[in-house]
Amino acid sequence: MQRRNFLKSALATSAATLASSASAQAPASSAREYYQLRKYTLRSGPQGKLSDQFFSSALIPALNRLGLNSIGAFKVQFGPQTPTTYILIPGTKLETVVDVDLILAKDAEFLKAAEPFWTAPAKEPPFQRIESTLLKAFEGYPKLTVPAKASKRIFQLRTYESATPLDHIRKVEMFHHGEFEFFRRSGCDNVFFADGLVGPNLPKLTYMLAFPDLDALDAGWARFNADPDWKKLGADPRYNFEPTVSNVDNLILTPAPYSQI
């Protein structure tokens, strides 16, 4: 009974504080973006070149014509199921982000450029599977940030799954109570932070950070974990009475030459 009352209190507090902190951080005119995050599990061999041509010459230009910009294209450097390419499609109009394939099917220029990929023979497919997750940007971080271009950079894509919806809400709340800033002052470049709306392993959130290299990544996380404000937040009874995260998926990605992020 005591735990149940604590949970009810925590849920009410989380909802109220999340709303107030988000409204304080997000500009009133900022529309929250949606993200379609596509995972293309590819095949080793010559078909990899066909996939790169599709992404660079067909898909990304067509998405730009739809007004969808800052398209991310990333290859898995460390993580399971390589070769794999992730395509990040941001946009403020949900219908456009969700209906991308239906819209592109009416784009003659896209269909011409995409033909080698779309019509590849079944015995030589350019990919094994495509998985898509629909995300919505956090209220406190409503738009994707494109990091400064550099000759060398890596990206970290992290997904936090939670055991219950309440645990998920509490973890999202922690980001709005300082984690954006903790990352920034630790030397991590924030790219996006978003809730999972549709996809596997819900409830979950996904975010992306950028670094010059692996040494910078390690140094950034060391500073983050040592931050006294982070330690104080993590020790708050609202967040430490049980784990807010039950599983972490962590990938190190490198941008493809045609990535716009």
Rank of each mutant, 00 (worst) to 15 (best):
L135N: 02
E139T: 02
A137V: 03
K123W: 12
F127G: 02
T159Q: 09
W118I: 07
P121L: 11
L134T: 00
V146Y: 06
A122P: 11
E115P: 00
L157A: 10
A114H: 05
A150Q: 07
S162I: 03
E95W: 05
D99L: 04
A120Y: 10
G140S: 14
E95K: 14
Y160N: 04
G140C: 12
T96G: 02
Q156F: 09
P126S: 04
A114Y: 08
K112D: 05
P121G: 10
Y160W: 07
S151G: 15
W118Q: 05
A163F: 04
K152Q: 11
P121R: 11
T159S: 15
T119K: 11
K106L: 11
S151Q: 06
E139Y: 03
P116F: 09
E139A: 04
P125Q: 10
L144P: 02
K152S: 09
L104W: 05
L104D: 14
E124M: 12
E139I: 06
T145C: 07
F117G: 01
E124K: 10
K106S: 14
F117D: 06
G140R: 00
A120E: 09
E109F: 01
F138C: 00
F138T: 02
S132C: 15
S132N: 15
Y141P: 00
E109C: 08
F117C: 09
L111R: 06
L144S: 02
A122K: 11
A122F: 11
R129P: 00
P121K: 12
E124W: 12
E161T: 12
T159C: 15
T159N: 08
Q156E: 15
K112H: 09
E139L: 06
R158E: 13
V146Q: 00
V98Q: 08
L104C: 13
W118R: 06
A137T: 00
P147E: 05
A108F: 00
Q156I: 04
Y141C: 06
A113R: 04
E115K: 14
K143G: 04
F127Y: 15
A114I: 03
A148Y: 00
F110H: 03
K123P: 02
I103E: 11
I130V: 15
E95Q: 08
K149G: 13
G140H: 01
P147Y: 03
E95N: 07
K123N: 14
F110C: 05
G140I: 02
Q128C: 13
E139S: 06
G140K: 01
F110D: 01
S151M: 10
A122Y: 07
R129A: 15
D99Q: 08
A163P: 03
L104P: 06
E131H: 14
T164L: 13
A122H: 10
T133N: 13
K143L: 10
L135F: 07
Y160D: 06
A150P: 00
E139M: 03
F117K: 05
A114S: 13
P126R: 14
L134V: 09
L134S: 08
V97I: 08
K106H: 11
A108L: 13
F110P: 01
V146L: 00
F155A: 12
A113L: 04
L135Y: 02
E95P: 01
A137F: 07
E95L: 11
E115M: 12
A120M: 10
A113K: 05
I154V: 14
V98M: 03
V146I: 04
V97C: 07
L134K: 03
K152T: 12
V98K: 07
F117R: 04
P121H: 04
